[in-house]
């Protein structure tokens, strides 16, 4: 066992009024890897993801982060421990500029967030770091644009810059490529790969092909249960997985459909 697993869930279960969305899931995410959680619609991916990030409370089971039990920890506290999530719908602060979006993440660590009597100019000391992050995700030219006016792909890039501002040990990405065109998918995949160099990434994805090259480990969920787990090579040849995807009309296990190159 050891602590080379950064996140571990034990018999994780979530029931909604008699309907079991996630049932007895034992997930182990190895440190410094990209781990993908995939499955057809209604497989419980997003529920599982929300349980790990504490946005939902599990009915039963345990969640460990760095060996520490976080089953009853608040979502905001998890973020401060180094585990930061993204959202399926791009989550930016629409009325703040790109720069301000990133600074909101930086300023919490600065410790001025309750200082209502101080001038906003004291945040300017964070600009250099914020600019580096904006540059890194390739949206430097939109620095002073309100985030709400950005295109979808750029919003996602901004979201990643904001997440990275917290320098998290672990990133949880909820369908980072959902609703993207082929070009954006490629660019985002590249970005995730770069970001994951010194971190651990757990991502939820709908299409197997998107995560094929990217992931070290893939866990396939079906009807709330773990169907299979392994490398892409193992998963894509697993007859049960193929069946699950074919059965629900998502024959995306082959390369190509979602722009995989």
């Amino acid at each position: 066992m050891g602590d080379d697993f950064i996140v571990e869930t034990r018999s994780l279960t979530k029931e909604f009024k008699g309907f079991v969305a996630v049932s007895d899931v034992n997930l182990r995410v190895r440190r410094h890897t990209i781990h993908a959680l995939i499955g057809p619609n209604g497989a419980g991916k997003t529920t599982c993801f929300n349980l790990v990030t504490k946005f939902l409370i599990p009915t039963r089971g345990q969640i460990l982060f760095n060996g520490r039990d976080i089953t009853n920890t608040e979502p905001a506290a998890i973020a401060r421990q180094g585990m930061v999530r993204s959202f399926q719908i791009s989550a930016v602060f629409g009325h703040l500029t790109v720069l301000e979006n990133v600074r909101v993440a930086l300023q919490r660590v600065q410790g001025t967030s309750f200082h209502f009597w101080r001038s906003g100019a004291c945040l300017d000391s964070l600009n250099q770091r914020a600019d580096e992050l904006i540059e890194a995700v390739g949206i430097a030219e939109y620095r002073d644009t309100p985030a709400g006016e950005l295109s979808y792909g750029r919003k996602r890039a901004l979201e990643i810059a904001t997440t990275l501002a917290l320098d998290p040990e672990m990133l949880l990405l909820d369908e980072p490529m959902a609703g993207m065109g082929t070009e954006d998918v490629k660019r985002t995949a590249e970005l995730i790969r770069r970001v994951a160099a010194k971190r651990t990434v757990l991502m939820v994805e709908h299409n197997l092909s998107v995560v094929a090259d990217l992931s070290d480990t893939i866990t396939v969920l079906k009807l709330g249960k773990v169907l299979a787990e392994g490398s892409y090579a193992e998963i894509s040849t697993n007859p049960e997985v193929v069946e699950a995807y074919m059965g629900s009309g998502h024959a995306d296990t082959s390369h190509g459909a979602a722009g995989h190159a």
Binding site: F93, H95, L96, E100, N101, R103, V104, Q107, R108, Q110, T112, S113, F114, H115, F116, W117, R118, S119, G120, C122, L123
Partner: peptide, 10 residues
């Protein structure tokens, strides 16, 4: 316009 205000807007 303070740092606190930024968090409020967020």
């Amino acid at each position: 316009t303070s740092p606190f205000g930024q968090v409020l807007k967020a």
